[in-house]
Design a protein around this nucleic acid. Structure first.
Length: 314
DNA sequence: GGTGCCGGGCC
DNA sequence: GGCCCGGCACC
């Protein structure tokens, strides 16, 4: 049955399949990566986080981006160079010192392997305001120590502080929901994959830009839409679509791409559509739409019974 | 108005 | 259980 469904215009589909294949290859085998050039911006970005990914996957040698705190003692080896400048800045600064802080923040970022739901989506981070320093740490003491040692040239060991560091850093709020949201859409993880997708180095430094590109309707984009396009169009991928699947019984989350407003309305009341418990409709085409009424025998049983579609889950 | 699917009925 | 459908919410 799945093989019988090749209904899309061939050229377009080919491109998408190509893009999907490339992404899948990238995501499944970090070893394939090598810093060649001349690819589209999207791929470049993907490559960026892939490289940080591979760096963190070899976590037994490099303690920086590992979420395993046990390997603190191992001296870190230099990570591969990154293409994204901002990210490089961030990563380099994070490699210099403060292993504890970095690991701590990283640990915070990855502590939940499933980024779907977070209890508290806002995380306060501390950003160094020193000129040309983009350092972001998760604790005030960490950023103070960073400023003391790196910028003020004080003794790193002593915890003495005269308060001067306070002028050189500021608190910033990082929305973890938005980050993980985009993350889950970007990474073609299969449902069986257990490990957390280590993409946060890029997302942290590039969160706003990432979110913006994500919000733009993917289909209206001309060239680099492959990433987004994949998850939008399920039709040609058939029943076995691996891009973003949800187990049958699971309650669907509203596909909410709108940027989270800064002014958190105190309380929860997030994207609840109405008072009822009815799920918001997913954007995926279901059997009825894909096959049409005339080919009802091709529908999944759930669709035939007017139940929640089991084939094209959201 | 088309669509997805919950709730409920029938077998 | 399997199967069907009324009816409602969402788009």
């Amino acid at each position: 049955m799945p093989s019988s469904r090749t209904r899309r215009p061939s050229g377009h589909a080919d491109k998408e399949v190509m893009a999907a294949t490339v992404l899948t290859t990238l995501s499944t085998s970090p070893l394939v990566l090598n810093p060649s050039s001349g690819i589209s911006g999207v791929e470049l970005a993907a490559k960026g986080w892939k490289e940080s990914l591979s760096a963190s996957y070899s976590s037994s040698t490099s303690g920086n981006w590992s979420w395993d705190t046990s390997d603190q003692s191992v001296p870190s080896t230099p990570s591969p160079p990154l293409t994204n400048d901002a990210c490089k800045n961030f990563l380099l600064s994070s490699q210099n010192d403060d292993n504890i802080e970095e690991t701590e923040s990283t640990h915070f970022l990855f502590e939940d392997p499933i980024p779907r739901k977070r209890k508290n989506s806002m995380k306060v981070m501390f950003k160094c305001l020193w000129k040309n320093c983009e350092k972001v740490l998760s604790t005030s003491s960490g950023i103070q120590r960073h400023i003391r040692t790196v910028h003020l040239g004080r003794n790193g060991d002593s915890d003495y502080s005269d308060g001067e560091e306070d002028f050189y850093y500021s608190e910033i709020e990082v929305n973890m929901d938005t980050l993980s949201e985009g993350l889950s859409n970007l990474t073609p993880t299969s449902p069986t994959t257990s490990g957390p997708p280590p993409v946060f180095p890029v997302l942290i430094c590039d969160a706003s830009r990432f979110e913006r590109t994500h919000v733009i309707t993917p289909l209206s984009q001309s060239a680099p839409s492959a990433l987004c396009h994949i998850h939008t169009d399920h039709a040609y991928q058939g029943p076995m679509t691996q891009i973003r699947t949800v187990s049958i019984g699971e309650k669907r989350q509203p596909v909410n791409n709108t940027p989270v407003s800064k002014t958190h309305t105190s309380g929860s009341s997030t994207a609840k559509p109405s008072n009822g418990s009815r799920k918001p409709r997913g954007e995926a085409k279901k059997c009825r739409k894909v096959y049409g009424m005339e080919k009802r025998d091709l529908w999944c049983t759930a669709c035939r019974w007017k139940k929640a579609c089991q084939r094209f889950t959201d």
